[in-house]
Nucleic acid binder design. Sequence first.
DNA 1: CGATAACTGAGAATCGAGTATCATCTCTCC
DNA 2: GGAGAGATGATACTCGATTCTCAGTTATCG
Lengths: 122, 122
Amino acid sequence: MQRAKQQLTVLQALDAADGPLSARELWSRLSGTGVGLATVYRALQRGVEEGMLESVELLGGGVRYEPRNREHHHYFLCSSCDHAFDLFGCVEGLESLVPDGFQMTRHEVVLLGTCDACANAG
Amino acid sequence: MQRAKQQLTVLQALDAADGPLSARELWSRLSGTGVGLATVYRALQRGVEEGMLESVELLGGGVRYEPRNREHHHYFLCSSCDHAFDLFGCVEGLESLVPDGFQMTRHEVVLLGTCDACANAG
DNA sequence: CGATAACTGAGAATCGAGTATCATCTCTCC
DNA sequence: GGAGAGATGATACTCGATTCTCAGTTATCG
């Protein structure tokens, strides 16, 4: 039952991305398709509810979204274009940082700097 | 020349904290001193301009501030009380995550979970 | 004691992100 | 074709964070 055509468009754009996208970022990638911002938000919200998307919060505020079916990974945030890239792999020694009595359930590692494209663009 | 009494109050409260504080968080710690929210923002802004404070962005949005004269460290963010705690120490193996062509200038590690106090409070 | 400049608190104004509303459109099923 | 449910885009709206404004204070210096 092919319904929610625009929602599919939104989810496909997210699948094609190389990192989590914010609603606005996603919307701008869909300019030309006529998809409205409200629809982007609706598609994201539903995607999360239905378990196929995951919301990700990185430094700097905004919430970004990405498909849930990706392995454990972290992010590289380009300070020039503000895009977040997935980084597969993880790091060692996190447990030793946790103070006594604290319970760690999750961790987030964000590398900051300049991405390939921005570095070459000057 | 003792001027800016309230600004000193603000900076001292920040020095006494065990982690970076948001403007609101700081303000609520100063309730009773009569310091206004606008003054907190002014003091923070000036502190950053004059190089004694540093603004820190963690997951979830808000900007937090802390004195600049602290060693390299990371944070534990309690998902219950939303307070951020400084964690001294660092991790290994970050460089290996950086993709070819990308330039890493900084990194941020955030552990999430429950702090001592909240874990005991239930 | 004035004069002046910096500081302050309260509340208004602004800004952006996200949400709600509503008239319209598009399927699906008969 | 017609009815009904769900989907859509534009836009108004809400909400919280931050900044601006302004009148009243306070410190400094003669």
